[in-house]
């Protein structure tokens, strides 16, 4: 689907007889531990999911437990873009711009059905999944997801961050969209996924 930044296969090999990687491995552990537990979110809240995001940040669920209570409303000081809510076409260039303004390393969580797939808004106005505009690391399903669901997604992202290796050359590459279409997914795939049942003006197809 054109989502990988580079073609090399990325694996981490662990060879106990060789102690060469010991220093970097321990350093990775320290850095990743620090990073994973202080992810500053950039809440891109648009709709219903933003209310559940606020509930997650409030006292009952308390995002501060994960070092995330510092909402970074400026993309330039943020680590995680949390897209909470539906993204219409009019908003598409805005979220792309915000993603480009965030410094590396950065991650994205797509919160809710609408951000992930368009959800119940399969119509002329709504982007069918923000992964066509920006690369997404974790999808949280639900309409809207419960705070527990979002926290589970955040934990998954923390796992991902903890498993990164600084020796991996491609890990901080900025993922560039296809230059001709400016999309991360080939247009033919978007069309196929977007309109499996075609398009119609007929509102009473069965005559009922």
């Amino acid at each position: 689907m054109g989502l990988s930044a580079s073609t090399e296969h990325r694996t981490v090999s662990y060879a106990p007889e060789s102690q060469e990687g010991w220093v970097t491995t321990r350093l990775d552990f320290l850095v990743n531990w620090g990073r994973a537990n202080s992810l500053w979110p950039m809440p891109f809240g648009t709709a219903c999911c933003a209310i559940e995001f606020m509930a997650t940040a409030a006292s009952d669920f308390d995002l501060a437990r994960f070092g995330m209570e510092r909402m970074s409303f400026s993309p330039r000081q943020a680590d995680v873009l949390i897209c909470a809510g539906r993204v219409p076409f009019k908003l598409a260039p805005i979220i792309r711009r915000i993603w480009q303004q965030m410094p590396q390393p950065k991650w994205a969580i797509s919160m809710g059905a609408c951000a992930s797939t368009g959800g119940m808004f399969d119509n002329y106005a709504v982007v069918q999944g923000i992964d066509t505009i920006i690369p997404v690391d974790v999808y949280v399903p639900g309409c809207p997801p419960r705070p527990e669901g979002l926290i589970y997604g955040i934990r998954m992202l923390q796992e991902k961050v903890k498993n990164e290796r600084s020796s991996d050359a491609g890990i901080r590459d900025e993922m560039e969209p296809d230059p001709s279409s400016q999309l991360y997914i080939p247009p033919s795939v978007i069309d196929e996924l977007g309109e499996p049942f075609g398009n119609s003006v007929n509102q009473t197809r069965s005559g009922l």
Binding site: T46, A47, R86, P88, K90, N123, Y124, A125
Partner: peptide, 11 residues
């Protein structure tokens, strides 16, 4: 406005 126009009335 219109950044969250999702076509409710059309649906």
């Amino acid at each position: 406005i219109g950044y969250l126009h999702c076509g409710f009335e059309k649906i």
